[in-house]
Write a protein that binds this DNA or RNA. Structure first.
Length: 330
DNA sequence: CGACTTTGACCGGCGC
DNA sequence: GCGCCGGTCAAAGTCG
């Protein structure tokens, strides 16, 4: 886009755009016509004469931008790590390893009932959660090692905007789920549905789906554990915003043993990111709101998303196919 | 007829 | 000890 913009500003025709997306070793290649691949015909007459110098200039610009974005990324990472560490320290001043033993004897008053339940719900084979365990869901007796039994399963939340009239508690994420229960919980008038992964019998993953208490048009899906099998459909590799005919995940949560931070990826019309909530850390939410509102954050986020997409050869192939479809035969 | 969903019953932890 | 609550079970019902 930067190149396109510069080329446009330089008075060159946009026809020079080389869209050899995914067809060359370089996954995404957009540039002026002179940057054509070897063996390809020269740019059409009327192409950019200044393209060579512009390409050099743009290469430098992009390089500088890459450095800047990398620096921003590093800075943001450090900042989030710092904020997170601060919050943890503030929320659990005695959160050291030694608390495990005392927790069994006398639970800390600040620890909510729910929190202790969450750790209790850990499946017997939840060692899988760190990816190092075996994939078998074999019942094993509780370990005497308290440290081991307290290991947290991976918990993540996905908020999904749905039609308020849609009463089905389904979130299409590509995996197959079997519903095994539904309950009305105290803090929310809408029922909570419980699902197990139905694709692999040994898969320990569970999912809870419930409408948000604040906004009934938002479904909150809580995933516990990690799948020990590949996703049955490609759509499920990520909760996809392109999902059709179903609910559309529109936000992500950063979890899991610490404060939950929910980012809304769609609601901000200005193209920014909105912090929906930072459970258990109101100050963190305030700070993150400031941070995500910044132009630097948006730029870094966009860069990172673009980078992830362009590294995915499947994506670039699909994009190339879609573009070729739109182009007249030549 | 098998797979899946629904829903009331049941279980175990926790607070009072 | 009792009641509340979240989570799970399992029989019955539904669907393709």
């Amino acid at each position: 886009m930067l190149l396109m913009d510069s080329v446009r500003r330089a008075g060159c025709s946009p026809v020079c755009l080389d869209l050899s997306v995914g067809l060359s070793p370089s996954p995404l290649k957009m540039g002026a016509g002179v940057a054509a691949e070897p063996g390809r015909p020269d740019p059409p007459a009327g192409g950019c004469r200044m393209a060579s110098s512009i390409a050099d200039e743009q290469a430098k610009t992009l390089e500088a931008k890459l450095t800047q974005v990398s620096e921003e990324n590093r800075r943001l990472t450090e900042k989030i790590a710092y904020l997170y560490a601060n919050q943890i320290a503030r929320l659990s001043p005695d959160s050291t390893d030694s608390t495990h033993a005392s927790q069994a004897a006398s639970p800390p008053p600040a620890a909510s009932r729910k929190r202790s339940r969450d750790s209790m719900d850990e499946p017997p084979n939840s060692g899988d959660a760190d990816g190092s365990g075996k994939a078998e869901a074999v019942e094993s007796p509780p370990s005497d090692d308290f440290e081991g039994s307290c290991r947290r399963i991976k918990v993540s939340r996905v908020c999904t905007r749905i039609d308020p009239s849609d009463t089905t508690l389904t979130v299409k994420d590509g995996y197959q789920w079997r519903k095994y229960g539904q309950k009305v919980t105290r803090d929310n008038p809408s029922p909570r549905a419980y699902f197990r992964c139905a694709y692999a019998p040994s898969c320990p993953v569970k999912k809870k789906v419930q409408r948000s208490a604040e906004d009934s048009s938002v479904l909150v899906a809580t995933y516990e554990g990690e799948h020990n099998h590949p996703c049955p459909t490609r759509d499920g590799e990520l909760p996809s915003c392109a999902t059709r005919g179903g609910s559309v995940p529109c936000s992500i949560s950063i979890n899991s043993s610490g404060p939950t931070i929910t980012l809304d990826l769609t609601k901000n019309g200005a193209g920014g990111v909105r912090v929906l909530e930072a459970a258990g850390a109101p100050d963190l939410k305030k700070l993150l709101c400031q941070e995500t509102a910044s132009a630097e954050f948006r730029t870094a986020l966009v860069e990172q998303m673009a980078s992830s997409l362009t590294r995915d050869s499947k994506f670039t192939e699909a994009l190339a196919a879609a573009i070729l479809k739109q182009l007249p035969d030549y």
